[in-house]
């Protein structure tokens, strides 16, 4: 049997597949928090998700939702409903579902890297950042007590090609929302609509403590790029991160306040790690 997991990991909502890719002729045999999972869609379209034994026998049916282009489940009993993203209701946005990309690291490392602006010029050179414009200007990272979400706000960065639709370099405003420990969404100035923000989100599906299938989407105002152009732009960025992520040691996210932090612009990392520690997250942390 799998080991007992703490509520802080169990009670989150996790994506196990995109709605589009979970087809009646294409079930998804996968894992979640170290346990075998089967996701299926019936011919009439109904989705069922079950937890199984290692031998493939059904243990129990799991809750399941379809939202934001994804199929979600949980192994626990979330106190909150799946977080609301009202931007999905807004007219004129295009949704790009990037496909599952597997990374050999913990979900915490993936989220922390996603929140880190300082790596842009070095890892996403000439796209999300460029030397010598490497300075991270002061920003705020704060736990919102009423929603129980971590928000990182007032970020800005100089970006040569902020989005697929960008026609040149620009100073870009950013903010990040971490609605639960293992999911994150960023908002950045949209090159396609003045004053609006484009969204990019990552939903790591932790297969094991240090192995994740990452589901990633973009929700953008962009009337110029092809779908494939936007998709491959994001997949390219992701693979630049992947090799850095896989080289970080330890692979589990260290929560000890004395542990070394990856970069100088750490406010978001410090707050993120502190939050996970206070919530009692044990899965995927060291």
């Amino acid at each position: 049997m799998s080991k007992d997991l703490e509520p802080a990991a169990l009670d989150q909502w996790y994506v196990i597949e995109s709605s589009e890719d979970l087809r009646s002729d294409q079930p998804r045999r996968t894992r979640l928090l170290g346990r075998p999972i089967l996701g299926e869609r019936s011919a009439s379209g109904t989705v069922t998700i079950e937890e199984r034994t290692e031998e493939g026998e059904t243990l129990r049916k799991l809750p399941c939702l379809e939202r934001y282009g994804y199929v979600w489940t949980t192994l626990g009993a979330p106190v909150k409903p799946l977080f609301d993203m009202p931007e999905f209701e807004e007219d004129g946005r295009r949704l790009v579902v990037c496909g599952v990309l597997t990374v050999r690291t913990s979900p915490g490392r993936i989220v922390e890297n996603f929140l880190d602006l300082s790596h842009f010029p070095f890892v996403h050179t000439d796209i999300l950042g460029a030397e010598p414009m490497t300075e991270v200007t002061p920003y705020k990272a704060k736990l919102d007590e009423s929603s129980g979400e971590l928000w990182v706000t007032e970020c800005g960065f100089y970006q040569p090609q902020a989005m697929a639709a960008s026609s040149g370099a620009a100073q870009v405003d950013y903010l990040y929302r971490v609605p639960q420990p293992y999911a994150a969404v960023l908002y950045k100035s949209s090159p396609g609509k003045a004053g609006a923000f484009d969204l990019i989100g990552i939903f790591p599906q932790p297969l094991e403590e240090t192995l994740c299938d990452v589901h990633c989407f973009m929700l953008v105002y962009d009337d110029v790029s092809s779908y494939e152009g936007m998709l491959q732009w994001q997949q390219g960025i992701f693979l630049q991160d992947r090799i850095i992520l896989e080289n970080q040691r330890p692979a589990r996210l260290p929560l000890d306040p004395k542990a070394e932090l990856p970069s100088r612009a750490d406010t978001s990392a410090i707050q993120y790690r502190r939050w996970l520690k206070n919530l009692g997250v044990e899965f995927g942390v060291a």
């Binding site: 010029p121 070095f122 890892v123 050179t125 997949q235 390219g236 630049q240 090799i243 080289n247």
Partner: peptide
Amino acid sequence: DMPGILTPWSGEAAEEPA
């Protein structure tokens, strides 16, 4: 380069971004 290739410059920089 392409995504996934660590060039000498990206590799060193990634370890010491500051």
